[in-house]
Amino acid sequence: MEFKATREAYGKALVELGKIDNRVVVLDADLSGSTKSKEFQKQFPNRFFNMGIAEANMAGVAAGMALSGLKPYASSFAVFITGRAFEIVRQSICYQNLHVVLCGSHSGISVGEDGGSHQAIADISLMRSLPNMKVIVPADYNETYLAVLESINMEGPVYIRTSRAKSPVFIRKDRFELGKADILKEGKGVTVVACGMMVNLALEAAKLLEEEGIDAEVINASSVKPIDRDTIVKSAKKTGGVVTVEEHTIIGGLGSAVSEVLTDEYPVRALKIGIEDVFGESGSKDDLFCKFGFTKEAIAKRIKEFVNG
């Protein structure tokens, strides 16, 4: 299987967008080599603006550009663009419902060695809580590419979460559809809803569960907001139990979004697999995934306990 980082797809898609629309402008805060927005700079230097290490100002500048008729894409590490710049994202971008696309790269603990200070674990919660904001957590390189391409047609603000680490490329589809979840594996025993890098792990965990006689349905909920209520509720009605898996705190992220839907429409037993209200730390991505329970074995074990519990 091919391995690629989702952040690489961001850079590639930006270049495509730059070709089709000369109102696309790209901003970064001194991390263009890491977020991959540098790819755009190479092709369109006059429409690329490095704002220096000043993420909050970058967000406001992007808002002013959107008010003037441009289509800004602004990127930084997820922890900074959703944390440091939060108030500006709220006041200047979301409050005015401006079409600004924010890309937070280096999300989650898969950042690895840089440690807890740089690992965004609450960015989904933060962005999801803002009115008008859309939140997209693509499952792999292919889906990231499609989501970034599609983002130019969306209305209002969009947050796209990418990752530093390489991960399997496995999504096969023609286009990204906001608000639509994909059932990647059908099953009757339990529903597993995941986003980002956890989608592939959930699929692998489902294979292990199959050997134990548990027939899991695996759903890719890359559109965390708006979330695909119908697909989730339909699956819950079929299986009677829902597990969420995310590389993010279990407070306010995908697990909460799914729980909100279920509470409203079809309460069933549920389990949230994610980061348990703690910060990350330094280590290799693989070591951290072992420690935090993001392996197919650990995920399968927890799903099995849930099903049997």
Partner: peptide
């Protein structure tokens, strides 16, 4: 002021 800078740059 941040938005004003964005507007000026957009021009």
């Amino acid at each position: 002021i941040t938005q004003a800078v964005g507007m000026a740059l957009a021009a």
